[in-house]
Structure formats: C-alpha cells, structure tokens
Design a protein around this nucleic acid. Structure first.
Length: 519
RNA sequence: GGCGCUUUCGUCUAGCGGCUAGGACACAUGCCUCUCACGCAUGGAACACGGGUUCGAUUCCCGUAGGCGCUACCA
C-alpha cells in the first residue's frame, strides 16, 4: 500500500461554519496531499439529519476558496468516487451494514432512547457492551421470529457493532506511534439508525474511506479514542490490509483558561474563530471572520500551519509552496497549542508589508468611506488616489517597509486621521500637549503663522528655506507646538511634509483654531 | 469515575544522551529623533515533580501531579 497514490480527505459535517481548528486540519491534509502528488477529497458528512444547517456547505467551500486550499475531488469538485455527500450514499451503507449483520459481527437493537436512559440511571457507568448486551432487547437476546416481527411492525432499531472483549487493539499513529486500547473498554457502537436510514459517523467513515481509497486519515486528536473501533471495523469488513494510516493532530486550545477552542467561543475571546463571517440562519447571530477582520489569507494559513507543526528551522514566514515542500507529519507536535491571536496579527503585519502600496488602496478606501471621507467633485478621483498613496507611504515607508506597526488596514485610521480631519479639540492633560504648549506658545504660533502666511512656495523645500533661518534667528523651535496645531497630538510625519500635504490654507486654519482654543 | 493523549521561557516552538538550552511573538530598557512609530542594540524569562537506566539526562523507562480529549441513535 506504500506504492499506492496518496489520497486524503477533509470531511466536515455541515452543522455550521467551519471553525479555525478544522481549517488547520484541512490545511495539513492539503499540504500532505500536494507534497506527495496525491489527491485531496472534500466529503460532506451529513449523517445527522437533526444537525443540518442550511448554507454551511457553501460557506465551507467559499472559505477554502478564500484560503487557497484546493480540493481535487468531492462535493462541488467532481470525481469518480462519488457521491461525496453521505446522505446520498444510503444504499451503499445499507449494503455494508447487511454484510456485517450476516457475518454476525453486528446485531440489531430495539432499545429506545428512554430505555437506555433508564438503564443508565439503574446501572452506574452503564455501557452497551459484551457485559450488558445480554440484558437488552436485541437480536442476540430475542428469538429470530420476534426480531422479524418487530421490524415488520415498524419498530425503530439501530445496528450495533459487536465488539469482542479482551483484545489489545493497536493503532499505528504517524504522530503518536503505537497506541493500544483494550477492546473491553469499547462499547457496542451504533453503526446505523433505522429512523433516518443513515449510518453513524463510524460506519460511514470506514466505508467511505475504503471505497474512496483513502490512504491516510489526518484528523483531530478528539478521534484518537475511537480509532481502535475503526481498526476493528476495517478488520470486520476484511479490509485490514488496505487500512489507511492514521495521524491524530493535537488540538487548538483557547488562549486563556482551559479547554479546546470551539465554535461557541465565537467572538467572546476577542478574535474570530471562523475564516469567514457567518450569519446564523436560525438565530440571525453574526460571528466575525478572519476575512472581514482584515486578515490576508496567506497570513491565516501561515500562522495556522505553524500551530502544531514546525519544520525545525528558524524560518517562520513561509509561502504555501514552501510549506508543501517542508511539511512533515512526524514533525507535528503532540500537545495542544493555545491559540495566540497576538501572533496571528503579527503574521498579518508581515504579509501586509509584503504587498505593494497600491494593494492597500481598496481596503483603505472602504475604511475612509466608513469614516465619512469620500471623494468630492473638487477632489477628483485621481487626486484622492494620490493622497491615499501618500498617506500609505507615510505609514508604510518607501524602502523602509515596517515603518508603522500596522497589523490591519483598519489600523490606518487612528494613524492617519489627521490627514483628512482637522483636530476639533485638544487634550490639555496629554503629556505631549502639556510639555509643548505653554504660556508663550500661542504667541509664538501667531508669529509663526505670519511667517508661513508669506511663504509662496509651500513645498517642503520652500518651507524649509524660510522657516529654518527664522527658527534659528528667533530661538524658537516651533515643530512640536505646530504639531499640536495640525495633528492634535504627538504623532504624525515630518511637519514640513504634513504642512505641504495639507496646503497653506488648511495649515493656517488649523493653527488659528489651536491658538483660539488653547490660548 | 473509566480509558487514552500530553508536559521546554507568559505564548508558539527548536532540541532527537554531553548545548553558556536556540528562535519568534509579547514585554522592558537604551540609541536615533521636530512627535509617534520604524530601525538598531540590550535585557528579563523555561526543561512540572520524584524515582530509576547511564560515566553523564531536557532528551530513554516507571510513577506522581497538572493539562487536554473521549466516554450519545453528534461529528
């Protein structure tokens, strides 16, 4: 089986938006498939009709499209192993359930949920297994004709896997090595429900992976405890020699407190747990997504890849191609990783800086519009565009990419607001204002404004030629107070550049306002 | 409770018997400077504990403790 073509799958159930841990699992499957020249299958595991959520499937497909994770076959991608939606494979499962039943490796159980609950009340730590199945209503305890009669009378039943106790079952895990669990602690898992004519996860999973010729099962650690059951199922079907290899990935944990990251954490923790924004069709609740928060897909992918895997070197920024080349399941860590969203932002910062200035314009545009800054007929589109680039250049810095710590385009607003909006008030308690605006400052600014008023060439050079000598002669260092006038705070670009950008008229207007207000 | 997985700086991690235990994020300080940043430099910060094995354990084995997961007619 080692010479067989690598085939892996990502198989979510459409019970809601894909969560970020699922994204990572899919990513690892993708990296593994690409590295081995294999195929990645997209399968929908909708065997629980009660939990189906409309729109979830489309959401998941859209999320992977955005992230740049491509599937080779599956729902919406085509392929020769379909159908790829489990709810469309009823006949197939039915056939294999019958096979197990005929071979005596599974049995029919009529116990209702209420009866099972009662048993759980009655017997502490009740488990449906070799020790207890003799006490229950099933095809092992009931006469054959009675079983037949119950079925024909339309009684609901389930098919349970008959686990033989007392055997050490070995799971050979690529990440964790040899994992052994004794079959006695396993319960007789439900494989099939007559109520909706559908299998449960376990049966569908094994049948599909076998039929779709899956070679490696790469999934979350939450499946490790049921892996022995899956091994037993492969054996029961006689498929042991083509059984896929397993790799159980460590879980993504909450950044603070305990437990694994879950869908329900939503925005409670202050960061998105979903790739895309999700509008819940039932509750109408909106959960934020990485895309809408201003993350670049490459940044999300890069960050996620390194949560639980590390190629060994000190390089952290990697393209998809590099990751495909470097990826190695055996280098995955075994313990859960806390989700560090501060570092996620840093990755985004890095990828943002790799982009050319023009790439920032569309998002910056949206940001400005959301703040009420729009192009006016006086400022033609091209002029506004140039302004934006100028502003971006200030934050980004020609030849010195890293000038500002900008993790998201939305960070631009507090840093560049003054380019577009004049200060409308001043905070006298501010350290910078207190230090740089004193008794005599208003008067100095008045004199300074007069000097500016007479400058014809208001370019950086033009200003310098007049202001530098004036400052020298009068022993005044006007820059910080001037900054308060134009910016309102101790931030912003070089003052000559800012004044040149704003123009003489606006510069003088802001100065007058500051002088009047601060006195 | 039972079963399984796991344990290196606050966080993500490198390490695969002998290292001043490395990097990144975050944090702090200094330099630069018309401000804020950036940049540069520096700094604090970790092998959970107890037994073995070994000339020698962060590394291998066994316990203990902590963390996580599973324990459904959910996946």
């Amino acid at each position: 089986m080692n010479d067989k073509k690598v085939r892996v799958r990502f198989a979510p159930s459409p019970t809601g938006p894909l969560h970020i841990g699922g994204v990572r699992t899919a990513l690892y499957n993708y990296l593994f498939a690409r590295q081995h020249g294999g195929e990645l299958i997209f399968r929908i595991e909708d065997t629980d009709s009660n939990r189906f959520v409309p729109g979830a499937e489309e959401y998941i497909i859209e999320a992977f499209r955005w992230l740049g994770i491509q599937f080779d076959e599956g729902v919406s991608f085509g392929g020769n192993y379909g159908p790829y939606r489990q709810s469309e494979r009823r006949d197939i499962y039915r056939r294999y359930v019958t096979q197990l039943l005929d071979a005596g490796k599974a049995y029919i159980a009529f116990d209702t949920p209420e009866e099972l609950d009662a048993k759980r009340q009655e017997i502490e730590n009740f488990q449906y297994d070799a020790r207890t199945r003799g006490l229950m209503r099933n095809s092992l305890t009931l006469p054959a004709d009675e079983v037949q009669r119950l079925i024909e009378a339309g009684h609901q039943y389930v098919v349970r896997f008959k686990i033989e106790p007392g055997e050490d079952v070995h799971v050979d895990d690529i990440i964790r090595g040899d994992v052994v669990i004794n079959s006695s602690i396993l319960d007789d898992k439900v494989l099939y429900k007559s109520a909706d004519q559908l299998p449960t996860y376990h049966l569908a999973n094994i049948v599909d992976d076998h039929l779709m010729e899956v070679t490696h099962v790469i999934r979350g650690e939450e499946w490790l405890p049921s892996a022995p059951l899956h091994v037993l199922l492969y054996r029961a079907f006689g498929w042991a020699d083509t059984m896929p290899r397993f790799a159980h990935l460590p879980l993504l944990l909450k950044p603070v407190g305990n437990g694994k990251l879950s869908k329900r954490d939503g925005d409670k923790l202050g960061f998105p747990v979903f790739p895309l924004e999700w509008h819940d069709p039932k509750s109408g609740e909106v959960s934020s997504g990485y895309r809408e928060r201003g993350y670049l897909p490459q940044a999300v992918v890069n960050f996620l890849a390194l949560l639980g895997w590390n190629p060994g070197g000190e390089q952290e920024l990697m393209s998809m191609d590099e990751m495909i080349r470097l990826f190695d399941l055996s280098k995955c860590s075994k313990n859960g990783a806390k989700f560090d969203y501060v570092k996620a932002a840093w990755f985004n910062h890095q990828y943002l800086l790799q982009q050319p200035d023009e790439a920032w314009v569309p998002e910056f545009d949206k940001l400005l519009r959301s703040q009420g800054i729009v192009s006016t007929p006086e400022k033609e589109a091209e002029v506004v565009r140039m302004m934006k680039l100028k502003v971006i250049e200030y934050t980004d810095g020609e030849g010195n990419k890293k000038k500002r710590n900008i993790s998201f385009i939305s960070d631009l607003w507090p840093l560049t607001r003054f380019f577009f909006v004049a200060p409308d008030s001043f905070n006298r308690e501010d350290k910078f204002v207190r230090k740089n605006w004193q008794e005599t400052t208003a008067d100095e600014m008045r004199r300074f404004a007069d000097v500016l008023h007479d400058i014809d060439d208001f370019s950086v050079e033009g200003q310098k030629a007049v202001i530098d000598p004036w400052a020298e002669q009068n022993g005044i260092r006007p820059w910080n107070a001037w900054r308060i006038c134009l910016v309102g705070a101790g931030q912003g670009p070089d003052m000559y550049e800012l004044a040149a950008f704003l123009g003489k008229e606006e510069t003088l207007r802001r100065m007058q306002f500051a002088i009047d207000t601060l006195g």
